[in-house]
């Protein structure tokens, strides 16, 4: 069964079509890259998939739930992390995780164990009481990702998780993505780094509200007769 199934999903704001009949499926444990220029419609599409925005037409199921009629179940069953808003700077590492876990209604005892387990994997167990605001951005991003996974979602949305992050931390983050995907969790990720596009199992590139190309990075490059995803991107966005 697919974790995400999208068919002719469309969103109009007045006369402007932000998302124009997009269709795709994403399977278990897949790393799906969702690329596009600024203003191409990515954010609108993600909002619909997360149940935050009602589509104008078309259909989509996420984690087995319909985006139009079962939005609240989607929210409970997905993980979400973005660069813009991740964690509370004035709370400690532990408090942040406790807050998120509680919002997702994880029973106290289980939550405590999950947090400890998670912090040990991250190598942050001895820093649990540190304020998140005092952490380097790289740590914050890894922590935000682990926090988004506390309630064990089968699918996680990562919206520009490595934006502004340096080359070493970006690579560490992608190792975390791979480790998570290898446990069967589906990863839906957006990025503006074209080297990261190559790390995706499959990817789609949006322009003017439409998915212009979709496939494995290798297939897309062959299909377009170019050697890098950056070139593919340039062709699609300019034309």
């Amino acid at each position: 069964m697919y974790r995400i199934e999208v068919e002719n999903l469309t969103k109009k704001f007045g006369t402007f079509t932000a998302v124009d009949h997009i269709s795709f499926q994403v399977g278990e444990g897949e790393i799906f890259g969702f690329l596009g220029a600024n203003g191409a419609g990515k954010t609108t599409a993600i909002k619909m998939l997360c149940g935050l925005l009602t589509p104008t037409s078309g259909r989509a199921t996420v984690a087995g739930f319909d985006v139009k009629t079962q939005a609240k179940f989607i929210k409970r069953n997905i993980g979400y992390m973005s660069q813009r808003f991740s964690l509370y700077n004035d709370l400690s590492i532990y408090e942040n995780m406790q807050l998120y876990g509680t919002i997702y209604r994880i029973p106290n005892k289980l939550l405590k164990n999950k947090i400890i387990e998670s912090l040990e994997t991250l190598g942050m167990a001895t820093h649990a009481q540190k304020l998140v605001g005092d952490l380097p951005l790289g740590w914050k991003q890894k922590l935000a990702f682990a926090t988004a996974l506390l309630h064990q979602p089968k699918l996680v949305f990562l919206d520009e998780p490595t934006s502004g992050v340096d080359p070493i931390v970006r690579r560490e983050f992608w190792r975390q993505i791979y480790a998570t995907a290898s446990t069967g969790v589906t990863i839906f990720v957006t990025t503006h780094y074209m080297d990261e596009a190559e790390y995706c199992g499959r990817l789609s590139i949006m322009a003017q509200g439409q998915i212009k190309v979709m496939g494995t990075p290798e297939d897309i490059k062959k299909q377009m007769g170019v050697s890098s995803i950056e070139e593919v991107f340039g062709h699609l966005v300019r034309s």
């Binding site: 596009g36 600024n38 520009e160 934006s163 502004g164 503006h192 074209m194 991107f233 340039g234 966005v237």
Partner: peptide, 12 residues
Amino acid sequence: DEPTTGVDPVSR
């Protein structure tokens, strides 16, 4: 200060 963070490759 980081004028192109979060900006797509063509716009960059």
